[in-house]
Amino acid sequence: MTTSLPVAIDIVSDVVCPWCYLGRARLNKALAQIPQTTVAINWRPYQLDPSIPAGGKDRQTYMMEKFGDAERIRTAHTQLTELGREVDIDFDFDAINVAPNTLDAHRVIRWAATAGPDVQDRVVGRLFALYFEEGADIGNPAVLIKAAGDAGMDKALVETLLATEADRPEVEQEIETARKMGITGVPCFLFEGRYAVMGAQDVQTLAGAITQIAEAKANGTLDQPAG
């Protein structure tokens, strides 16, 4: 079956969430398994910790304050590193020195949505890689500007906008809306604005969900109640 109408996928995510990075990689592998199905992806903002100051915090200190157990942190990092290898992610948690506030990153991601086809997803992917594989401070405006340019955005425009309050209230409102919807963890995949799949699901689960929704949409049965 070839689906002419794309399946809309909104992904609520934070770019400092390793499970969100895994979720994106697994989604890409799922889509590769169902090339006959087209999708329209839109990244939505979420902040795991909006209390982090604008300049960020020392990550080791932050992680100990948050989890309070070095062994627990090492165990989680080991698990994530192993899962990452399965989807070609090379996590390097030791390289991360700063726990950033991600509000500005989400502003850039918001602007990327109107910068051209697939630009937003490229920006998101680049920010994930910068943070989790290269240890870059993605709260740093210079890092954000370069990432935006690398993904095809207008660097000068991004630099100008970042120096202002442009879209800050809108991003904060989107984050609040996600919380009011009951989203307390990410990633959250929202299909066609109504069907939610929580967490970094495995490739087959994502592929199956997308295929089922695509078929229902193509057949005109998407909104019909289950018999």
Rank of each mutant, 00 (worst) to 15 (best):
M1E: 12
V7E: 01
D10Q: 14
I11T: 02
V12F: 12
D14I: 07
P18T: 10
W19G: 03
Y21S: 11
A25F: 01
A25S: 15
R26G: 11
R26F: 07
R26Y: 07
A30T: 09
I34L: 10
I34G: 06
T38V: 10
V39A: 10
A40H: 13
I41S: 06
N42I: 08
W43Y: 14
D49I: 07
D49S: 09
D49R: 06
P50Y: 05
P53C: 06
P53N: 06
A54Y: 00
G55H: 01
G55P: 04
G55F: 04
G56C: 05
R59W: 09
K66G: 05
R72V: 00
I73Q: 05
I73F: 07
I73N: 05
H77T: 01
Q79N: 13
L83T: 00
D94L: 08
A95D: 08
N97L: 14
V98K: 14
T102Q: 12
T102G: 06
L103K: 04
D104P: 08
D104Q: 15
A105H: 03
A105R: 08
A105D: 02
I109R: 10
R110K: 14
R110A: 14
W111E: 00
W111Q: 04
A112T: 11
G116C: 12
D118V: 00
V119S: 04
Q120F: 07
G125S: 14
L130P: 00
L130E: 09
A136W: 02
D137I: 00
G139H: 06
I145H: 05
G149V: 13
D150N: 01
G152Y: 14
G152K: 08
M153K: 03
A156D: 15
L157Y: 11
V158R: 12
E159M: 04
E159Y: 03
L162Y: 07
A163I: 03
D167L: 05
D167P: 05
R168D: 01
R168S: 10
P169A: 00
E170I: 14
Q173N: 13
Q173T: 14
I175T: 11
I175C: 07
R179T: 05
G182E: 08
P187W: 01
C188E: 12
C188Q: 08
F189N: 08
F189S: 06
G193C: 10
Y195M: 12
V197L: 15
V197R: 02
G199A: 02
D202Q: 11
A207M: 07
G208R: 02
Q212M: 13
A214G: 06
A216V: 01
K217P: 04
G220C: 10
D223W: 13
Q224F: 05
P225N: 09
